[in-house]
Structures are given as C-alpha cells and as structure tokens.
Amino acid sequence: MKKSLSKKERLKSRKQIDKLFKEGLRLNVPLLRAFYVVRPFSVSERSVRLQFGVGASSRTFKRAVDRNRIKRLGREAWRLQKEPFFLQLEELNKALDVFIIYTGKELPDYQQMYASVAEVIKKIGGKLK
C-alpha cells in the first residue's frame, strides 16, 4: 500500500462530518479527541475504506497559520501510520471514518502529534476486533 493521503481519503463532506459528530463514537487521548464511525464497506458505491479529517479550534488558536500547522502535522502523522489499520479493515470488510480534533493549548511538535495519533489508532484498532 502506498503511503499517501489522497483526495478520496480525506473527510470533507459536511454531511458526513455532521453525522460523525452526532452518531459517531468518541475517544479521548492526550492532546486529541477522535470521533469515528465503523460502517459496512460496499464496492458498488465506490466508497473509500478509510477516510480521515483533522481540525483545531479557532478559539484556542486565533491565527490560521497555527491551525493549519496543527492540521498538517496531524495529516502527516496519520498518513505514516494508517497502513495496519487499512489491512485490519480489509479483513473485516468494514469502512471507517475518523475525525480528530486537537485539544491541546500549545502548538505541538511533530513527535507529540505522532505519538497521540498512534494512540488513537491503537485504541480504535483494539475496538474493531
């Protein structure tokens, strides 16, 4: 599997994100809050097996530059760690939507973000089994 985060893998649909916040399961780890929904995978509707989104509060981070950096770090950490997740979903014939919100108060460095995303992946992966 290629280590990329293609356009199809990004969670951008407002309707999908709203549904995720209303009906999805919630998970808290240090620095992050994750919302996720496991759904059956169907090839017919050309859905993607794994979709991901990331956000940061404009109340905490007033400058768009800071919010964009947080989102960039989150996407990169996810991109590098999603492969085992994808294989697990393939075995179960499921699809997963995940949206992560950064809840920390200071700008994270890459190691902090990577570790937090790894924790989210580990916890969701454990609940899939």
Rank of each mutant, 00 (worst) to 15 (best):
K3V: 14
L5A: 06
S6Q: 14
K7L: 11
K12C: 13
K12R: 01
R14A: 00
I17Y: 05
K19V: 11
K19E: 15
L20I: 03
L20W: 02
K22T: 13
K22F: 07
L25I: 07
L25C: 12
L25D: 02
V29G: 01
P30F: 11
L31T: 00
L32G: 09
A34L: 09
Y36K: 03
V37I: 15
V38W: 09
P40I: 14
P40H: 05
S44F: 12
S44I: 14
E45W: 14
V48R: 13
V48W: 12
G53W: 02
G53E: 05
V54C: 10
V54D: 06
G55L: 05
R59N: 13
T60A: 14
F61V: 08
R63S: 12
A64L: 14
R67Y: 12
R69A: 01
I70Y: 05
I70A: 03
K71G: 07
R72H: 15
R72F: 14
L73E: 04
A77Q: 04
A77L: 00
R79K: 15
R79P: 04
L80G: 06
Q81A: 12
K82W: 10
P84E: 05
P84Y: 03
F85P: 06
F86H: 15
F86N: 14
E90H: 11
E90N: 09
E91L: 10
E91F: 09
L92V: 11
N93Q: 07
L96V: 09
L96G: 02
V98K: 00
V98R: 03
F99K: 02
F99D: 02
I100S: 04
I101K: 14
G104W: 07
G104T: 13
G104I: 05
L107T: 00
P108A: 06
P108Y: 01
Y110K: 03
A115D: 15
A115H: 05
S116E: 06
V117G: 07
A118I: 08
K122Y: 07
K122G: 13
K122Q: 11
K123H: 12
L128Y: 10
L128F: 03
K129F: 14
